[in-house]
Design a protein around this nucleic acid. Structure first.
Lengths: 111, 111
DNA sequence: AATAATTAACGTAAAAATACGTCAATAAAA
DNA sequence: TTTTATTGACGTATTTTTACGTTAATTATT
């Protein structure tokens, strides 16, 4: 039988993997970039910029929200999505130190 | 019909997404860390350290190799895997500048 | 109060990822 | 040369992701 084995790894790696997964689709990277450019915007507008249906874009937005990289503020019928800068910063640091650690330990480089 | 739409995005985003995808599973992060610690090692040894079968670990190794984050050097019956430091560095820079750009553009922060 | 706009929830189909066993090939060791 | 060790290729089952249409709910607008 095939069962998910991700939870058998260190918590730290699991969480990092979840964040990287959130960045593993070009649509979600495009959303992040777009939100960075335009302060706020509703999901309908975002789907106008992307080659995907509104439904699918909404799904990607929900995924980004789930891991805390963006936040949505309800305003009437609309939802203003924007980056969660604190968490973006945290991820920036996480990736920075992950690579830093990997590189430091690999001093004893293989040829 | 459901077709892959990833190729409808900018090349840059596509490539970044592929690299992040390679990092989106704790097993692959564990492999990278392990390779960083122990210079080289064969895939059999790596699977001893991970809660996964040798076959599955091999699959993850192949994926990391496909995106160039690791390289395998055949040595007799064994394969010595090690990090591809150049590409790890490149990815480090890519993530660094991706986040830097996102943050710069988000100066006009939404509260 | 009725209509329009917008979004999340739900359902679903296809594709991709995950996990693993088995087998064949290759090289080393006996 | 036979046996052992090790790995990649292949097949396959299950789960997850991706993509989208439809519907229901909620808020504005008329």
């Amino acid at each position: 039988m095939v069962t998910a084995k991700t939870e058998l790894f260190e918590k730290e790696l699991q969480e990092a993997a979840l964040l990287f997964k959130a960045l593993s689709h070009p649509a979600r990277l495009a959303i992040i970039k777009h939100l960075a450019e335009t302060k706020t915007c509703i999901s309908g507008n975002i789907s106008d910029e992307l080659p995907l249906s509104r439904t699918t874009v909404n799904q990607h937005l929900a995924e980004l929200k789930k891991v805390g990289l963006i936040q949505g503020e309800i305003e009437g019928t609309r939802v203003n999505y924007c980056l969660n800068i604190e968490n973006i910063n945290a991820l920036h640091k996480l990736t920075y130190f992950f690579f830093k650690e990997v590189q430091a330990r690999d001093k004893k480089h293989c040829k």
